[in-house]
Design a protein around this nucleic acid. Sequence first.
DNA 1: TTGCTGTGTTGGATCGATCAAGTCAATCGT
DNA 2: ACGATTGACTTGATCGATCCAACACAGCAA
Lengths: 336, 336
Amino acid sequence: MKAGPSPITSNSVAKAAGVSQSTVSLVMSGKSAGRVSDSTRDHVMAVADRLGYRPNATARMLRTGVLNILALAVPNVKQPFFGEIFVAAEKAARQADHAVVLIDTQNDPKWVERIIDMVRGRMIAGSIVYASDSEDEPRLAEIADQVLVIEGQNSGSPVDINVESGIDAVVEHLAGLGHSGIGYLSAAYPKVTFKRRFDYFRKKLRDLGLEFRNGWHSRATFEIEASTSGAQKLVRQPAITAIVCDDDLLAAGVYRAARQAGRAIPDDLSVVGFNDIEFARVLSPELTTLAIPTERIAQEAVHKLLEKLEDPARVSSSYEAELTLKIRSSTARPGE
Amino acid sequence: MKAGPSPITSNSVAKAAGVSQSTVSLVMSGKSAGRVSDSTRDHVMAVADRLGYRPNATARMLRTGVLNILALAVPNVKQPFFGEIFVAAEKAARQADHAVVLIDTQNDPKWVERIIDMVRGRMIAGSIVYASDSEDEPRLAEIADQVLVIEGQNSGSPVDINVESGIDAVVEHLAGLGHSGIGYLSAAYPKVTFKRRFDYFRKKLRDLGLEFRNGWHSRATFEIEASTSGAQKLVRQPAITAIVCDDDLLAAGVYRAARQAGRAIPDDLSVVGFNDIEFARVLSPELTTLAIPTERIAQEAVHKLLEKLEDPARVSSSYEAELTLKIRSSTARPGE
DNA sequence: TTGCTGTGTTGGATCGATCAAGTCAATCGT
DNA sequence: ACGATTGACTTGATCGATCCAACACAGCAA
């Protein structure tokens, strides 16, 4: 029988204050307006405070059925971009009096099952999923009302990102500088997000009449070795004069590979990133990249999810994030 | 009255299976050995499975008093090092059937109060705190039995890091190369950890008879601008031929400042980092840094915390992590 | 006095699981 | 053959808060 840290219940407070347990509950839940006299309320509050009483969240949840924990699933927490997503989401959740359980889907192959279990087992109210795998979504359908997917397969999400116009800007920028051999380095995650970006990128090239050869696309995980080897394949091809990366971190791999191959950035090779994490400005030369309104996205996701949980039917207005191309020093006219 | 996603309770399973609710509980909790016949157990399991039943975690927690959620508080999730700590901790927790609520203490000024509330309110079983502030620990004392602090003030933690021998290695390495003007760039967080490292660093210099002038210490947050301006102060001083950084990311700021100041690494300036995050190898030149057994630390922390929660009295053997100096290309003999 | 309204407070059922104690048949020992 | 033991389940209390229905009681009108 381990001694709990504080065996103080509404009951003990009631006894100490000389009122009924119901009254304590009334006072603590803030529903005392017009139901409890000011004097008793103050008295109960004082006693509760003195004893250091906190209502048992577990008991409350059981009774009310209202959970105040959310999950957030991201492909890789170690990527600063997802760290930023988490920080902003946690803040928004906290302001709505919710806690956030973070799930790294790379690290946890059975993440979908875990989320389903947690929802069904009433451990969490619902979950935000950033970037889902094509295999994930059908399984998530089971708890569709408790989940909000960002950058997933289905385009009907209340929080969407206008990747297309962003990629337009990138490609037009490079084409405008005179590049015609543009390579693409994407993350190795099996997320539809990354495929969608790449597909649109190729379409855009086609629209502008630019060629895209076999071997101009390479994949890389964020483990450095793999990342640079993916980058090396691209850097070694002289026909490629610019490389677009799925993520700023991958750009770091390109910088490294370029240095080893003796190609100077931006004179011999232009590089564009994605996400505009802080790190983009510490690279040298500073990275031209596509900025994404991280904080706003996370905020909106939390709010829309909470709305959805309250009433799955209500399809509140959705939010579409716009990307902004930040032109810095890693892009220039092709040399030679 | 919002329709719950699955109103399937042990009761409904019991009805469907034609047994009592207790029997369902017995079966589901795995305590059926010798108490329930194999045939009924299989039958109940089958029915439960068919209905998609998951025991209500909230109700179970209320009854048993055993929570299976932990918190992990770190100074800054966006730093890959803490991302790695989280990933490893979450994995260890998951294997012990626990979920992890991540708390970014920079982003949440009232984090101590939140953790205390969560513990007292029985939302989480306990918490791991990585790097506490000197003001935090007295307040954490209130729930000392539910908290495990890593790199905090008090040295009695079951998980400790032998920072001293690591710093010895760094300073001896630099001194051995012939450096006598060694600057120090530390994180601006008000955590005792960082002060402790710096204090020991100075002591070590003294022991080796090396001077440490005013102005050779600078602080930086991880926001890039601030970081480089902190780094610039050091880089501009010709007397400084080597800089030791609290964290690998800060080293990136130094690289940048050095480039701007026209000092080449490692010829004009040696740089040493801390933590050996992946990123250390993508910098160019690759960063000499102090590696820390991140995964092991997180694992041990989770295990020790769970032990402690089971029996606060049992002071199980403690784990002391050793640091390893990874000598790469950012350090060399001082030039000129 | 009786009836009525409204404010302030309380009893008790309830959420869904766990667990100790109890029922009842079949089996065992001598 | 009869009480004792075992096996296989069920009954009912319990965790701590919420919340509805009930109640006490004051003030007030008739």
